[in-house]
């Protein structure tokens, strides 16, 4: 959309200035993420261009080094458990909350998604004191429960969003035709909310996989996760293996972003919502 031919020179000036500012801001947003990818193939442990040669040594260290391997395993184990737990809890709650005239719906919803509004450092300190008393400190179970607390709101939000405009007469029709509640859920409700559930599950997985503050407070070195290892790596001498780890995480986010976007489109198509 070029500048209108009827525009005054001043308007044209503003038009190009606006474009220039936007280009700069978009570069600011995307450049740091893109700059780090080529550096992960650098053959020397420095962070500057031009690179003297290419090598896969940092990836080798990431996938074969004991420290990173344990961290990767821990991260995946914790995130998968968190995903299963939070998707179940969150979907059930969203289903309940979406029933028409649920009492105190707004207040309850605010309470259930408050874990993402409360600063994580407060959650971490509070859980640290609490877990110290109940003996969950420095355990996998403690870390999983803590991550589930901050991951579940994402599931509640996405599934609730899928359920807005959900046609409850569909479930009534199924029930009227003689289907027991369980059949209604699995054959009618579930296929419709599945895209929301999967997006929520991905968000939950991502939020656990990326979480560092809780991992620092309530877990020990034995339960170290990928972000925690990266955090200590930056605080000390920054090791180029971090760039390899970062690149893998970026690819991971791109894959997640694509999946969620595809699911969102599918869900809108299923529910007959047209995006203008």
């Amino acid at each position: 959309m070029p500048a209108s031919t009827y525009a005054s020179p001043m308007e044209k000036g503003w038009y190009y200035l606006h474009r220039l500012i936007c280009t700069a801001v978009l570069l600011f947003l995307i450049a740091p993420i893109l700059v780090i990818i080529p550096l992960s193939f650098n053959s020397v442990p420095f962070f500057s261009y031009p690179m003297p040669g290419l090598s896969l040594r940092w990836y080798q260290e990431f996938f074969l080094g004991n420290q990173w391997q344990v961290a990767l395993y821990n991260s995946i184990f914790v995130a998968v458990s968190v995903t299963l737990l939070s998707t179940t809890l969150g979907t059930l709650a969203a289903l309940g909350l979406s029933r028409p005239n649920f009492p105190w719906r707004a207040a309850l919803l605010s309470l259930l998604i408050s874990p993402i509004m409360v600063p994580v450092v407060i959650t971490a300190v509070a859980m640290y004191f609490f877990y110290a008393d109940v003996g969950l400190l420095n355990t996998y179970l403690g870390l999983i429960l803590a991550h589930t607390t901050i991951a579940t709101p994402f599931v509640v939000i996405t599934v609730t969003a899928t359920l807005t405009g959900f046609d409850h007469s569909l479930t009534r029709a199924a029930a009227g035709l003689g289907a027991p509640p369980v059949t209604v859920f699995f054959n009618v409700t579930l296929p419709l909310i599945l895209p929301g559930m999967i997006s929520g599950a991905l968000f939950a997985f991502g939020s656990s996989f990326d979480e560092v503050v809780l991992a620092l407070f309530i877990a020990s070195v034995d339960q170290r996760t990928l972000p925690r290892t990266m955090f200590s790596g930056i605080r000390e001498e920054i090791n180029p293996t971090i760039t390899a780890a970062a690149t893998i995480l970026i690819l991971f986010s791109i894959a997640m972003l694509t999946t969620v976007e595809l699911l969102r489109r599918r869900s809108e198509r299923l529910r007959g919502i047209r995006n203008s």
Partner: peptide, 30 residues
């Protein structure tokens, strides 16, 4: 996509990126 990709990228990754970019012998200074 240029707005949403950073939104989706790990916070640690972005912080690492800034350290790599801005440090004394980092990309920007060089």
């Amino acid at each position: 996509i240029m707005v949403v990709l950073p939104f989706w990228t790990s916070l640690l990754v972005r912080t690492v990126a800034w350290v790599v970019l801005l440090q004394q012998h980092g990309v920007l200074n060089e």
